[in-house]
Design a protein around this nucleic acid. Structure first.
Length: 296
DNA sequence: CCTTGAACCTGGGCGC
DNA sequence: TGCGCCCAGGTTCAAG
């Protein structure tokens, strides 16, 4: 599910309910998601105040007042929702029946703030998500973060950085952009979209965008801009709502209506004057969508 | 070092 | 209505 824009949208959606609130108790309804929860997870976080919510790549970060940080990754199908008001008397006894999906409510953060009690509930049918806890001071060296590349937000990511990463690589651009060690936070959708915006084939070797001196060719400058713009546009639109992914307030992001190639196999390319047809291919086991006519 | 494929897990959609 | 197959936003590990 969630690539960087979706996680950023989740962070913004959860902030009003969580920032400054007391985390009264973290209720774990099972011992593991993708990985087991740390044995002391609930004890470490319960009774702590939440300072702020952050994000790094596709990870949501919940800063606690004692210096610990809850790390949450949403995997493919993870989502959070907020329920305001008094809690249920018994687990599962929520005011709003959720039917069969309620069995995938795996974590409940019980909160208390000036606005009253609330619950932030983590739901994840496929359980590819995971949570951990670490100290703020050692976050950057945590195994989840130490090898991550640059964020594609703001002006940090530049073509010279990517030239350094791509130089001499025969690896296709699709794989190079999905590699979190190069750029942190891109996923299948936004890689496809960025390559289309840049007019570059997903099959093209990454090293062909770097000149003999190791400097970025013009195409790599365009690609860098395309990556930054597609991420910025998606965040502004509240991310993409696909299949089971909805925002924290139950509303839908609408960037999926702006897809140019993703999930559009057989449909006309949207490049003005192109006239090509979007095709689907498989690279490294993932679907790649692109227009063979205008992406070279 | 490279790349591909399978694995983790559940559910939705489609063809028959 | 049901069964079987394929597909899905991610990451990691094994194998070639």
């Amino acid at each position: 599910m969630p690539e960087l824009p979706e996680v950023e949208t989740v962070r913004r959606g959860l902030t009003p309910a969580m920032e400054g609130a007391l985390l009264v108790r973290a209720e774990l309804r099972r011992a593991d998601l993708r990985f087991p929860f740390p044995a002391d997870f609930s004890a470490l976080v319960s009774g702590r105040r939440i300072l702020s919510l952050g994000r790094r790549a596709k990870y949501l970060l919940i800063d606690l007042e004692d210096g610990n940080v809850i790390i949450a990754h949403l995997g493919m199908s993870g989502s959070f929702r907020v329920e305001e008001g008094a809690g249920p008397e018994t687990p599962g006894d929520f005011h709003h029946p959720r039917g069969k999906d309620e069995k995938h409510d795996h974590v409940v953060f019980h909160l208390l703030s000036a606005k009253g009690p609330a619950r932030v509930i983590y739901n994840d049918p496929r359980r590819f998500g995971f949570m951990d806890i670490t100290n703020r001071d050692t976050l950057a060296s945590h195994v989840f973060f130490r090898d991550l590349g640059e964020e594609p937000t703001g002006n940090v990511l530049d073509a010279s950085y990517l030239a350094q990463r791509f130089a001499g690589k025969a690896q296709p651009l699709k794989s190079a952009l999905l590699d979190q060690k190069n750029i942190a936070g891109l996923g299948n959708i936004y890689v496809c979209e960025a390559l289309w915006r840049a007019g570059l084939s997903p099959m093209r070797a990454a090293g062909t965008l770097v000149d003999a001196k190791g400097k970025p060719k013009k195409a790599l400058v365009l690609l860098t801009e395309a990556i930054r713009s597609v991420i910025a546009d998606a965040i502004a639109a509240g991310g993409s709502s696909l299949r089971d992914h909805i925002q924290t307030d139950g509303t839908l992001g609408y960037f999926q209506h702006s897809f140019s190639v993703y999930d559009r196999a057989g449909e006309p390319c949207r490049t003005p004057g192109c006239g090509g047809t979007v095709s689907r291919a498989v690279q490294a086991g993932r679907s790649t969508f692109h227009c063979p006519k205008c992406q070279k």
